[in-house]
Design a protein around this nucleic acid. Structure first.
Length: 388
DNA sequence: AACCCGTGGAA
DNA sequence: TTTCCAAGGGT
């Protein structure tokens, strides 16, 4: 079970799950209320109403543990770069990672790529159309299989993500609990609510219902301060927005420092990057600015400070510039092996698998242009030449 | 089953 | 400043 909830309840004892003796949810009434609300309140999202299962798949993988706003920033650009299953399958992995840069959980991109290659070579390039078959592909777990099967293919199967779980726990009054039985209960409730079959061939009831459940959790039944007065199923809800939650992991803070070193190569500008170890657990093989030890920083002023969070750690990052050939001090302080350091043309940074932090720093310092989304009519987007 | 994997907006 | 946690999956 994902962790989310209310701090004020974090230390309360979690009572044992009680057997539900109360009358069950009226599934039919619930569905009607939910869908009436959804039809007038659904957000317009780039992956809504698409007919291409490949696109649905990409959106669902991007959305795993990732906010809608973050996905919106990458979805269209990723699909412009890899418009089809085949295009993705034929691409080199670093290109895929480069397009994924900033989204995090880079294993998702690697698995998506691997699955695309498998579907292309073994399944004739056709994505399986059942949740059971989808489930066997790398990067497609229980949630994603059900999401693609219901949304893209109309299969009657319920999704259970963090939103659906929270909605159902509040609706039924079951406390958040990290146990197989609690999870099974939630899955049961979700399955009970999903429409059994298509009303009409064109109308995807299960897919719409699943998206409506998630939409309700994402926009009304919020983790903190739920908007119960706007909830379409308020009258059917046991808790009206309160439910016990599990304690959270404590956050940590840590300083970090990186080197920005630029040089000219003819008319081009190059930036010094370091490739992370291929066996690193975190962002293996990706590129970042060379990290600097804290003791190399005395008496120097950073050209940029920012916060960067990774899992449970807030990094307070400082970036230091090596200005010109005379400043060898900082360069000498880089502990990396020479083999891991690479002078990279700033004009090519968009196809380098940068870590999210490296990308953020390089863009903020105008070393790397923020690539504009190419519009259908536009002949050629402005070149991404850096200003240095 | 418990743990690991990224990120950043919002409060 | 620190905390919270998002359309999870793999091991």
């Amino acid at each position: 079970m994902r962790e989310h909830g209310k701090a004020e309840h974090a230390n309360d004892p979690v009572p044992a799950p009680k057997i539900i003796e109360e009358p069950e949810l009226d599934a039919s009434l619930f569905r009607r209320k939910l869908m009436t609300w959804y039809r007038s309140h659904a957000r317009e999202l780039p992956w809504r109403g698409v007919n291409d299962p490949y696109r649905t798949w990409v959106s669902e993988v991007m959305l795993q543990q990732t906010r809608v706003a973050a996905v919106i920033e990458h979805y269209e650009r990723f699909l412009q770069r890899f418009p089809s299953m085949l295009a993705l399958a034929l691409a080199p992995e670093p290109e895929v990672l480069a397009a994924w840069s900033g989204l995090g959980y880079y294993r998702r991109a690697r698995m998506l790529h691997r699955a695309a290659k498998f579907v292309t070579s073994e399944l004739g390039g056709v994505l399986p159309d059942t949740s059971t078959a989808l489930r066997t592909l790398p990067g497609i777990g229980e949630y994603t299989a059900a999401a693609i099967a219901s949304i893209a293919f109309g299969e009657s199967i319920a999704v259970v993500d963090g939103n659906v779980e929270r909605v159902l726990l509040r609706l039924t009054g079951l406390p958040e609990e990290n146990s197989a039985t609690a999870r099974a209960f939630v899955r049961e409730q979700a399955a009970m609510l999903v429409p059994r079959r298509r009303v009409a061939p064109q109308h995807n009831a299960a897919g719409d219902h699943n998206q409506a459940m998630m939409e309700l959790g994402a926009t009304i039944c919020l983790p903190r301060s739920p908007l119960c007065l706007h909830c379409p199923v308020y009258s059917m809800c046991k808790t009206r927005g309160e439910h016990l939650t599990q304690p959270r992991v404590v956050q940590r803070s840590q300083p970090a420092a990186y080197l920005l070193s630029l040089r000219k190569s003819g008319t081009a500008t190059e930036v010094l990057l370091e490739q992370r170890d291929a066996k690193a657990s975190l962002m293996a093989g990706m590129y970042e600015l060379p990290p600097l030890p804290q003791d190399a920083l005395e008496g120097r002023e950073p050209i940029l400070r920012l916060r960067h969070s990774i899992t449970n750690t807030n990094y307070y990052v400082q970036v230091f510039a090596a200005r010109g050939p005379q400043d060898r001090g900082l360069r000498k302080a880089v502990p990396a092996a020479k083999a891991d350091l690479h002078w990279t043309r700033t004009s090519k940074l968009n196809s380098v698998p940068l870590t999210g932090l490296a990308r953020k720093v390089l863009q903020r310092l105008d070393v790397m242009a923020v690539q504009p989304l190419q519009m259908p009519d536009e002949s050629i987007a402005e070149s991404s030449q850096a200003r240095f």
